[in-house]
Design a protein around this nucleic acid. Structure first.
Lengths: 192, 192
DNA sequence: ACCGAATGAGACATCAATGTCTCGCTAGAT
DNA sequence: ATCTAGCGAGACATTGATGTCTCATTCGGT
């Protein structure tokens, strides 16, 4: 009896398939199952063996995103240091999954009417708490609700990913543009 | 011979159909032609008589959005008053088409590889010019490029539309949240 | 060297959406 | 009152993606 990581043989790495699917779908949301399979370098039948259908694939992508986001949030240590610094660490940690995020956000129209996956609620709460902490510490203005700042963060990350992919913003400026707009805003502040 | 507005009889109002299609598609981007027809209160065959196919429908929606955005930009008088005030007028004028905008932005993955519709380029240029003007007048920081601020504006409007539709932000706060974040940012400024 | 599990390729049925057509009807013009 | 353009409803063929199956092959473990 052989058992590798998960107790059985694994020729195709499920995670690797998901990542290439994410890369493709974030560029072409309507990509076919066959295109996803080819992009991952596997056959369509094999893709079907691992993910029952397109829905299952999207669900798996969502789970992957949730898991990686939780990890990124942990690593960003949202409750340490100033809220400013925590936001910077957060954006930096989220950059690698910006394309996947923007795909899932648009795909989340699937969940309209359905129960919201509470995994997203947990993440939203963590970000909201961060902004709330910044407000309580006097760093952030209190007239913008934490909920809105959370939405704005996602929106700006999506816009940034799109702008970079379209060549309107240099990839190296991704974090700076988002963080500076979110934290500092377009209006010039006398402090700074 | 009879000729009304456009030289012939019109039982179904093409613009009205497009607006209801926009309302539906912004909520459910994968809506079927049949669903679009039902939402507009017409038959599927009739919808097909007016728009050859789904592509043609999306193109028409795009043209409608371009036309209404141009009008909104004109009415916002982007080159009058301070850049701040112009941005406020701009966001106010764009609010009614926020859902349509967010739909088209995600749908614009269709144009990947194709030629970008230069109508969008014109609009982008007008917004970019506004931000550039604000920079030259010393109101806006110069380390955020006009191109990025333009993308951010679209991104925030999309995020705002989504947040409102999802009940996370009150509709009446839509303009305020977007404008204040875009102009003032999350970091509290001593002036204000 | 052997064996079995998993894969790739392809065939196949299914299904949903699309696009086209016909036909009976109605509203508006004359 | 009549006529006709345009509509709704439905039937129909077509298309493309999906999901399932089979079979030969390959790769890893023993």
């Amino acid at each position: 009896m052989s058992h590798s990581v998960y107790g059985r043989l694994m020729s195709v790495d499920r995670t690797q398939v998901l990542h290439s699917a994410a890369a493709l779908l974030s560029r072409k949301a309507t990509a076919t199952m066959d295109e996803v399979a080819r992009a991952a370098g596997i056959g369509r039948a094999t893709l079907h063996r691992h993910f029952a259908g397109r829905d299952a694939l999207v669900r798996a992508l969502e789970q992957l995103a949730l898991q990686e986001l939780e990890a990124a949030f942990d690593e960003a240590r949202l409750d340490e240091g100033t809220a400013d610094e925590a936001v910077r660490r957060l954006v930096a940690g989220m950059e690698p999954m910006a394309p996947l995020l923007s795909f899932l956000v648009t795909e989340n129209q699937l969940f309209e009417g359905d129960q919201q996956n509470d995994g997203w609620a947990r993440l939203d709460a963590r970000v909201s708490d961060l902004f709330r902490r910044g407000q309580e510490q006097g760093t952030f203005r209190i007239d913008l609700t934490p909920a809105w700042l959370t939405e704005a963060l996602y929106g700006l990350i999506g816009a940034g990913a799109w702008a970079v992919q379209d060549g309107r913003v240099a990839a190296k400026d991704f974090q700076y543009m988002i963080v500076e707009l979110l934290l500092g805003g377009a209006r010039r502040s006398v402090e700074k």
